[in-house]
Amino acid sequence: MSDESVPTPGTDEFVKGLWRENPVFVQVLGMCPALAVSNTARNALAMGLATLFVLVGSNLVVSSLRHFVPRQVRIATYILVIATFVTVVDYAIQAISLDLHKALGAFISLIVVNCLILGRAEAFASRNHVGTALLDALGMGTGFVLALLSLGAVREILGSGSLFGVPLFHEGFQGWVVMILPAGGFFTLAGWLLLFNWLRERRATRLAALEPVGATGGGR
């Protein structure tokens, strides 16, 4: 629980969550909501924003309490804080739209057990200043939103021929039913993971080709 982390430029804490350490496509965390409620772009966006809110809230509280909470009870405290923010989100969504609450179902409550949130609290917020923790949460949360949105968009376009409920195709479009079903979530996720790994591998080979032999690997 020291503050001895290497000082890094503030923007990097934000940017790393978007691409390099994207929670879904690189760390493969939070699979349960990513697969279960990404059947439409609207559900995916709502779930992503709810997670973003919980992540920012819990990271802020955990970071500001990091000198106050003893090691032995830290996990219990984190869970308490996370569960509180999840309950807040649950009420907020019910107040905004009951239909949305029905569509997301039990997965709102299940944000509590999203490894991403506990992971950021334990691995990052409890060791860093409030400001850095906020940037980290915003970056990771935005990365999660973008990932869910890209899953949801593919599934909704193929499955129902629409995006955010707006029809994209002519009358008589044949939806790919499997894309709305859970199996479609796995297929879409696999497709995105394939793309991400292919891009990263290509980049790594290019960098390796550029760097002179023996140089220390500082490139990312």
Binding site: Q174, W176, V177, V178, A183
Partner: peptide, 10 residues
């Protein structure tokens, strides 16, 4: 199996 799941009616 994929076609069956994707296009059950046809």
């Amino acid at each position: 199996a994929f076609v069956q799941a994707a296009f059950p009616v046809p």
